[in-house]
Amino acid sequence: MLARLASNRLHEIRRIFSQPTRSFSTALNYHLDSPDNNPDLPWEFNEANKQKAKEIISHYPSNYKQSAVIPLLDLAQQQHGGWLPVSAMNAVAKVIEVAPIRVYEVATFYSMFNRTKVGKYHLLVCGTTPCMIRGSRDIEAALLNHLGVKRNEVTKDGLFSVGEMECMVSLFFNGLVI
């Protein structure tokens, strides 16, 4: 009996490892220095966004400036072409007067903050069960094949990148692409 149990278990393990591994999230939870993303690069809000940032912070009491972290990160991401380098997060931390790690915590929590470079058009394929059943994987494979990139990679011309996201409640469609 023990032998049968063991062989069953072995079979299970083999089945697990034969599956293509899928990453849970779009990016690593720690920072790796690269030429276009390291803490030494200068980063600042531009003049227009400085005004906007001031406006955003004015929505919150002066002793709760840190509440503005999400809108400010969003602003920074828009300014920086759809993604957040670590120096942008440091800049946000400085504006709201908290330790940088408090900003990193927020930025890593939300998958819509891209902490690695994305293309001008960041395509997100829904990976949630209903879409997956209706063939979202095939759509993703077609996209990747067409663009000649892997997931979370940017095309050479910097225009497109493909990522995965969670349900956007469009269950009627056969896989949603944003």
Partner: peptide, 20 residues
């Protein structure tokens, strides 16, 4: 020393400093 933080979420959650 505000160096350590909780990064990521769900099953990917981990304790770290984000930058080395």
């Amino acid at each position: 020393v505000q160096d350590l933080g909780m990064l990521g979420r769900g099953s990917g959650e981990e304790i770290g400093t984000y930058v080395e």
